[in-house]
Amino acid sequence: MGIREEPADAWLPDEDVLACMHAFGAPEKDINAVRARIEAQREALRGELNGADFPVWAENWDVVMAFQDVQTQWVRSSFSGQRMGLNYAGVNAWLDRFIRRTRRKNMFAGLQLMERAVLVADQELADKERR
């Protein structure tokens, strides 16, 4: 097993980066470049949804994108393959790597909310199939 090197352009700025740039007096051209990169990221991620458009409030966007990133952390029943919940150790490792400490508690709460919604939807589908 080797070490995986991240691509040079893997840096994903967010609104916090813009706030820091403003606070430290970064040149406007640099701020605009980062703002353009954030918007490009959002457009690329929207394209990944395969045309399944749905409204997301701006204040929830980061949680929705984080939820997309932690989709590999589902724990499944060994018998049925049904989702049981997220592997919180893996989710917390992701949060530690990508989310500022001051935002982790709220981000985790948002991820738990989405986790519960998925589990409820899974149960509704299972109930519908049994009928």
Rank of each mutant, 00 (worst) to 15 (best):
K128S: 05
V56L: 02
M84Y: 07
V118P: 01
A44L: 15
V63M: 02
S77K: 10
Y88F: 11
V70W: 04
K105T: 05
G2V: 07
A89P: 04
R101Q: 12
E115M: 13
L111I: 10
G90K: 06
L49M: 14
G51H: 09
L113V: 00
M107Y: 04
D30V: 09
N87H: 13
L49C: 09
F108W: 03
E59F: 14
E28T: 09
L125D: 06
D16F: 08
R35I: 04
I3E: 10
R76A: 14
R103M: 06
M65L: 14
L113G: 15
V70G: 01
E115H: 04
N92Y: 07
F54Y: 11
G51E: 02
K128E: 14
S77Q: 08
V64M: 12
R97Q: 14
S80Y: 10
F98V: 07
W57S: 09
W61Q: 14
R103E: 11
V118R: 09
G25R: 10
N92Q: 10
A121W: 01
G110D: 02
V120T: 06
R131C: 04
R104I: 00
W94E: 02
F24Q: 14
I38C: 00
G90Q: 06
P7M: 03
K29R: 13
L113E: 08
R130L: 12
R101I: 03
V63R: 00
F98N: 14
L49W: 06
